Amino acid sequence: MALFNPPEHLSCHHYATHANTGWVLVDGSEQQFYRGETEYHLILFCTKGSIRLASEDDLCELHAGQMKFIPRDSSVHAYLSHDGELLSAYFDVIDFICDKISLQQLKELKDTVTYNPNPLEVRGAIPSMLATLKVYLEDKALCAYLHELKVKELFWNLRAYYSREELAAFLSPVLGVSKFHNEVINAFTCNTKVADLAERVYMATSTFYKQFREEFGETPEQWIRTQSNKQILFLIQDYDLTIGEIATRLSFGSLSSFSRYCSKNFGYAPTALRKALQSGVTSEELMQAAHKE
């Protein structure tokens, strides 16, 4: 169904307004790979099929009926199955509308809940709300005012159908995250040297080591290796990219250095690694194997 009298809608100033709150629909049958730097906070919903998602130091898979929070200034890569569908809410301010719950209250709960990076199940009235949203988006209802109302409705539903503990865990990446933590995430590149990472955040290497252990709970070398392995395993499954393109994108100096890294960490050269994943070896199994090395 199309909008009635489109010229009337398009002449409204809400259609000409750049909105910092809204919704985006991505269909896997038309666009299988989605990449982007997040200017705003996101809540990603898998409404059909499945989505392999990589964001900074997190690698997961969303299935229909699940959602995932992504904080602003993150690098997001999402690979949709052919029947996959991604519905994304973006917003600048986390607004729970009602004074009964505030971001400050959730921050106070942060230390008492365990952050779980796994997707959260969608429940309550949210599925029916998303179904209505899909109709709007498919009909090109791009009114900024409407989009803002639907984001506010989403927050109302989060407050209505999830406990404060669940919300504190879900939004944990932005509850009390330090400036240093964000700087490290933003400065990270695959297989970087610790000294280079320290230099990018304008710290002496010795100071960087100390603060990193306190903030992340592991050595910089361990963390860099884990994040590098996650990025490789994610991109190696994007079959539109050649091995050489992946090596370049991940900042390896040459194809041979990328091949050596994969052989050392996964026990497979890049092409063989891709075939292993196609044959049924999972990313989780490869990450566990690399961790034991």
Score class of each variant (00 low, 15 high):
279 S>M: 08
35 R>F: 10
16 A>W: 02
99 D>F: 11
140 K>D: 14
203 M>P: 02
258 F>H: 03
167 L>F: 05
266 F>R: 01
95 D>F: 02
80 L>T: 07
50 S>C: 05
210 K>S: 15
174 V>F: 00
67 M>H: 07
82 H>C: 02
4 F>P: 03
271 T>P: 01
173 P>G: 03
285 E>R: 12
15 Y>H: 15
68 K>A: 07
83 D>S: 12
88 S>M: 15
255 L>N: 15
70 I>A: 11
71 P>E: 11
146 L>T: 07
234 F>I: 03
157 N>K: 09
273 L>I: 00
260 R>D: 15
248 T>D: 08
239 Y>M: 01
263 S>I: 11
109 L>A: 01
14 H>M: 13
25 L>A: 04
270 P>M: 09
138 E>V: 08
201 V>K: 00
208 F>R: 03
24 V>W: 06
56 E>K: 10
169 A>L: 02
178 S>A: 05
62 L>W: 01
247 A>Q: 10
49 G>K: 04
110 K>W: 09
51 I>G: 00
268 Y>Q: 03
16 A>I: 02
219 T>F: 09
125 A>L: 10
155 F>C: 11
76 V>Y: 09
257 S>R: 14
159 R>N: 14
195 A>Q: 06
253 G>N: 13
247 A>E: 05
16 A>F: 00
217 G>N: 03
200 R>I: 07
76 V>T: 13
263 S>N: 13
165 E>T: 05
